[in-house]
Design a protein around this nucleic acid. Structure first.
Lengths: 155, 155
DNA sequence: TATTGTTATACTCTATAACTATA
DNA sequence: TATAGTTATAGAGTATAACAATA
């Protein structure tokens, strides 16, 4: 009964220097957050990445895909596939620009706004759950530090 | 000349509430860090995930794959593929346990230790680059906060 | 020529299911 | 029956290259 089984809970497993690396910890935290979101909004048929895209389109109606791709740091081809999925589900609408017919102005549909509102509720619930383990002012401090760190590598 | 081009640098693009979400900022920061690592250690043929696996195997020689999968929160089938790649490149060695022949004890090879040392140098350079934008004591504070946040969702 | 956007293709990472071998 | 591990398969998510339409 006291026999140590190789598959038991980590009795004395050593993570080496990993716990001291910000890169490692950011990755682990991101995974945990992502799994939780997937569980909570999975039924709404919108991924975390799509949530961000919808949020940016709501705030910037008429944006085109190249601008969105640059902001979101995705290749335009990658984004094209995401937009096709969102349009296919009726969440966004693409409208050819009259002045420059190469552009498509992107906009949320009514259904898109409704879905975004529901997803946003879940996301903000999750954010409030995080606040339960943060001290006063700590949220802003962490956000600021994370932005500074990202800024080091954002060429 | 003052004409606003849709593909110009974001003049007044609104990110909505995204910048206030920890989930969003952790994701952006993780992406930036990941892209930088890929660029810096890509030539060594080791991904960030493989770096973590090698580090844990160096600190815990003889670990088996089920334990490693649980610690790293991957399905055993997923990990099996990673281990096959690492073994195929001669970085790890798998040795059948004598007492319980279902287990394979995992260990770094000499080449694995050498590669890990080189990758670790790059990783620690990157961590030092982050320190340049962090105040005194801020690294430990962020690591602690990130661990607390992950703990909220780690069932 | 340059830009917006799409499609084809491929690669990585991940999970689920079905399997073998061992206990 | 239960556990360790592998393989087959599939689905995200991503990038590169080639292309069409427009400027």
């Amino acid at each position: 009964m006291t026999k140590v089984k190789p598959n038991a809970a980590p009795p004395g497993v050593d993570f080496g220097r990993l716990p001291g690396y910000i890169g490692y910890q950011v990755r682990q935290t991101q995974s945990a957050i992502f799994r939780d979101i997937a569980r909570s909004i999975g039924g709404l048929g919108v991924t975390p990445g799509e949530f961000s895209l919808l949020t940016m389109l709501e705030a910037n109606p008429g944006l085109n895909s190249v601008t969105l791709a640059r902001l979101y740091r995705l290749d335009k081809a990658t984004l094209s596939l995401s937009l096709k999925r969102l349009a296919g589900r009726g969440l966004i609408r693409t409208e050819r620009s009259a002045e420059d017919r190469r552009y498509y102005a992107l906009r949320l549909t009514t259904a898109g706004r409704k879905t975004l509102a529901r997803v946003t509720r879940h996301i903000e619930e999750q954010e409030r759950a995080m606040d339960a383990v943060l001290g006063p002012g700590e949220r802003e401090q962490i956000l600021d530090a994370l932005r500074r760190i990202a800024g080091v590598f954002d060429r």
